[in-house]
Every structure is written in structure tokens, then in C-alpha cells.
């Protein structure tokens, strides 16, 4: 996997090749686990629960997430680090708030995406993975999805870096693409570890594909391709709204935002007309 470094290294800072290697190892672990699971998926799950695939999925994805955290966390500046708990809390609380309005989406990554946009891909990936680990104190079933959550934060940061958040209509597009990738990566976890999805609505979609004779992994991947891009498109739009609703003084204090001109508009130091 050829990937740019996850950390935004300041010029002159000896970030160390070790961390870079850890980042690459983490990403490679996640990618290799996914490829292995798809290639070796049990042809006939009627022979028993996919215990082998479940162990491989858990091991590979969690190892990748932990490597990413170990590589990224110690080099984050304190101003970014204190935002990670805020992002985790926002993931949880805004998800519940969306639920209370009765809108038919389950939206649990707003904080992760917001950190990815404001503080870069590395912070986004670490926030996603940490969010799953801490949230698993209340709901252990989110722990296996740590790799998918890290991918969402990373892709949000990359989208911000190449300027997709400068034009408002591009944010949902970036979310849509992120949703496709994250949904596909998370599908083996849902299929092999839990044997299905936890929501009744998504379960109905999976049932429809199963009724047509798909394998479990194929059915869940197709379901993820239906619901996740929509969900992440909304999440990215909300994160963009929040990023623009925050005062410039707050958003432009992030080096990532200043360096890559993530948000449209001038820095607050420029005299406003």
C-alpha cells in the first residue's frame, strides 16, 4: 500500500522513521487482513460459525488500529490531543441527539470527521481508533470496528488536505467516497464476528440480498454500499457546517488548517473588510 505519511511533520522535526514504519505496518495489517478474509471466506457457513475468520478479523484489524495509535498519539501536539476526548464525546452525544430527532440515520462519526478536518489525517485516524476503544467501555460491540473508524478519520483528513472542504458541495462527495471504502472494510467484521448487523432496518436489507442467494459477506457488503455512503455524506456535511460555524479564531489556530488552507476564507489576521 503506497500511502503518504499520516503525520504532518513540521519542517526540522525529526519525526523518526520508526513511527513512519509503524504507521505503514498498521495500514498494511488492516489491508492484508481484509484481502485475506475475502480470499479465504468460508464457502459454506452452514458448517458452523465462522470462528476462524472472526479471530483473523479481530486480530488483524485490532493490531492495525493499535499500531496506528502507538505511531500517532505520542507526536500529537497537546492542543490536538485535548480535542480527542471532545471528539469522542461528540461522536456519542451527537449520535444520540440525531436518534432523538427521529431522522432515519445513525450518525456516530461527526467528532472523528471534525478532528480529521481540523487537525489532519493522523489525528483523525487516531481519534477514530481511540473512539472505538473508549466507546467499547459502554458497548463492546464497537471495538472490532476500530479499523473502519480509523479509516474514516484518515480519509476525512485527506479530503480536507486536498481542499474538498473549501467548496461546500464537495464535502458530501468526499463523505460518499469515504462511506464506500469504510463500509467495504467493515463488512467482514459484521459478517464474521457478529453474523449480521445490529439494526433491524439494515438487517432487512441484508435479508433481501440473502434471499437472492448471496453469501453472507457479499450481502453485508452490498448493504454497507447502500447505507454507509449516504450516512457518511450526511456526517461530512454536518462536520463541514460545524467547521464553518466555529469562529475563525478557533479554526485557524490549527496548524493543519492554516498550512493546507482547509477552509475557504482568509485567516483572521488579515484585516476584514
Amino acid at each position: 500500500m503506497s500511502q503518504p505519511a499520516l503525520t504532518v511533520t513540521d519542517p526540522g522535526q525529526a519525526a523518526g522513521r520508526g513511527r513512519r514504519l509503524l504507521e505503514i505496518a498498521g495500514a498494511a495489517s488492516i489491508a492484508a487482513t481484509y484481502v485475506f478474509l475475502v480470499l479465504t471466506q468460508p464457502a459454506d457457513i452452514a458448517n458452523g460459525p465462522a470462528s476462524f475468520s472472526a479471530l483473523v478479523a479481530l486480530g488483524g484489524f485490532l493490531l492495525g488500529a493499535v499500531l496506528l495509535i502507538v505511531a500517532v498519539l505520542p507526536v500529537l501536539p497537546t492542543s490536538t490531543l485535548v480535542l480527542i476526548p471532545v471528539a469522542l464525546v461528540l461522536n456519542v452525544v451527537l449520535g444520540q441527539l440525531m436518534g432523538s430527532t427521529g431522522l432515519p440515520f445513525y450518525i456516530d462519526a461527526i467528532g472523528t470527521v471534525l478532528i480529521g478536518v481540523l487537525a489532519g489525517p493522523a489525528a483523525g485516524a487516531a481519534t477514530g481508533a481511540l473512539s472505538s476503544i473508549v466507546w467499547s467501555f459502554f458497548n463492546p460491540t464497537v471495538l472490532p470496528f476500530a479499523a473502519g473508524a480509523a479509516l474514516i478519520g484518515f480519509l476525512a483528513g485527506m479530503a480536507a488536505r486536498i481542499g474538498l472542504f473549501r467548496r461546500f458541495y464537495l464535502a458530501p462527495v468526499a463523505g460518499f467516497i469515504t462511506g464506500i471504502l469504510a463500509g467495504v472494510v467493515s463488512a467482514p467484521i459484521a459478517a464474521f464476528v457478529f453474523g449480521g448487523t445490529s439494526g433491524l432496518g439494515t438487517g432487512a436489507i441484508v435479508s433481501a440480498f440473502r434471499a437472492m442467494g448471496d453469501t453472507l459477506l457479499a450481502a453485508i457488503t452490498k448493504q454497507a454500499l447502500i447505507s454507509d455512503p449516504m450516512d457518511k455524506g450526511i456526517v461530512f456535511t454536518i462536520a463541514a457546517l460545524l467547521a464553518y460555524a466555529l469562529p475563525r479564531r478557533t479554526t485557524f489556530q490549527f496548524p493543519f488548517v492554516r498550512r493546507f488552507r482547509v477552509l475557504a476564507g482568509k485567516a483572521p489576521s488579515a484585516p476584514d473588510a
Binding site: 449480521g196 432487512a204 441484508v206
Partner: peptide, 8 residues
């Protein structure tokens, strides 16, 4: 999760 698995 149980309900979903049962239906599925």
C-alpha cells in the same frame, strides 16, 4: 442484534 440475527 438478536432480533436482527433471528430474522436474517
Amino acid at each position: 442484534l438478536f432480533l436482527s440475527l433471528l430474522v436474517l
